[in-house]
Amino acid sequence: MSNNKLTVVDREGKSRDLEWEPDQTLMEALRDNDLPVLASCGGTASCATCHVFLADEVFDTLGERSEDEIELLVEAEGYRECGSRLSCQLDFTKDLDGVTVTLAPEE
């Protein structure tokens, strides 16, 4: 499977394009491209240091968030009921080719 294109808006508002590889979660694609995503729990929806925003229309196409993910996100800086996700919980899918992801503020 070919890579996805991914546009990331960092915390300074700067955009950057990168490749999202099929065996990466979104968090791994961000982290392995040197974006400042701490991801301290290693992708187990425990720490919420990989919080990102997605556009409404993209968000709506994603699966339901787990209870843990919601509880962590609700308390996160800048939480959006529609738009906030933990990037470690988003697996690669071709549906997300070309998506734009915005890093949530650091706490």
């Binding site: 843990d68 509880e71 962590l72 308390e75 996160a76 706490e107």
Partner: peptide, 11 residues
């Protein structure tokens, strides 16, 4: 079995 207090507590 819940994380509601986790982040507020960290802060």
């Amino acid at each position: 079995a819940g994380l509601a207090d986790f982040r507020p507590a960290k802060k």
